[in-house]
Design a protein around this nucleic acid. Structure first.
Lengths: 207, 207
DNA sequence: AATAAAATCACGGATTCCGGGGATATCCCC
DNA sequence: GGGGATATCCCCGGAATCCGTGATTTTATT
């Protein structure tokens, strides 16, 4: 019996996956969680064979969750779910230690296949994802930078249109500090300006 | 026999819809097009009963296509397809004259239901969309501004991180002109800065 | 305990952005 | 033909941003 855990903050997706799993008699649902924190804790306790993980959770990024699990040298297979079909996003999560990537508009069958394939020790990408990854070209060298909690916070406020001064006031820190973070972000994203950073971050689902 | 036309620039989606329609004997495919321009022309000639329209086409925005069709007082039902599940996007396209809105991660059944419902003269929103639209709150008063071709161009270049001067050089226009466009965009989006504009535009699928 | 990473603060100068004006030419639709 | 939308161009001043360079403190991780 395969123990499957689901971590996703969308109730509808959760519901759908529940139904999918309960229709199979070789799998069982080992828990449903809506946040990364709760999910991580539960994985340690319940030790599921497979985790279906939404990579856009409110608290922790999917990549971070993967890294934390891999650091503990877990055998748990991680199949990531996402609506994002951009190369850098996919590669980023795979590099972080995910075993599979399935777009949310895939059919249930693909998820079942993904579970079996990853348990066999092979990675699994859904149809559409395979297509995307097999195309050579443009966005090839783009890496998704690792942003810190604070930097993410800064990006979110800046993307709302707040100026450096306003962000500083909101976070009770100096404008100089905010400027430092902005500079670091521009450098990390290898962007020409904060505007470009915001576009990339939005597109990659970081904010 | 219901004549259904599909306008979508994603071959995979096109393929899926083709299969879906060919499996029904009360519907027929009245043409497949990958651009708004080709689609609009074809609608005038073929006069389909229903158009399945991706709202993010490379050349013309989905909302513009709806408006153009509605201006001609066509009876054609328009069912829009999209991956975007944001309130403003949905409301915008419905206001432009669409009869239905179906998220791309919906099942084929929903599309069939959408076709029948809209032909009965009623609007149709897919399950998820209904949920989103029935939630009251936050993004309620947000309208998606109507941007011109030129403004869109400016947004795209700015979002790449180009400065006003660089954009002007690229487009062979004066920096003053670029500044005017930026100002107009900020005003149209009711944003505090260009950064916020880019975020909104990215999120709404405008760029 | 030691090293690394993240977060904090600081200065100065060149450049850019934003908001407030105004002006002209073109195209499309009624 | 007139009105409206679009695209183009111009000016100015105050504010904010970007970039280089540097440093301190807090917080993990080993």
């Amino acid at each position: 019996m395969i123990k499957v855990m689901v971590i996703d903050d969308h109730p509808i997706v959760l519901e759908g996956l529940k139904n999918l799993l309960s229709s199979r008699d070789d799998m069982m649902l080992a828990g449903c969680f809506g946040t990364g924190k709760a999910g991580l804790k539960a994985i340690k306790e319940l030790e599921p064979n497979v985790v279906l993980l939404d990579i856009n959770l409110p608290d922790i990024s999917g990549a971070d969750i993967c890294r934390q699990l891999r650091r503990q040298d877990k055998e748990t297979r991680i199949i990531t779910l996402s609506i994002h079909n951009e190369r850098p996003v996919i590669r980023n999560i795979l590099q972080a230690g995910a075993n599979g990537y399935v777009l949310k508009n895939s059919v249930g069958e693909e998820i079942i296949t993904a579970i079996h394939t990853t348990l066999d020790g092979r990675p699994y990408l859904c149809r559409k994802t395979q297509e995307i990854m097999s195309q050579v070209g443009e966005g090839d060298l783009v890496e998704i930078p690792q942003v810190t909690r604070r930097e993410k916070e800064i990006m979110e406020l800046v993307s709302k249109g707040m100026t450096t001064g306003q962000v500083a006031a909101q976070l009770f820190i100096s404008t100089h500090t905010v400027e430092s973070h902005r500079k670091n972000l521009i450098e990390k994203f290898d962007a020409a300006s904060m505007t470009a950073v915001i576009k990339l971050a939005t597109r990659y689902g970081l904010i």
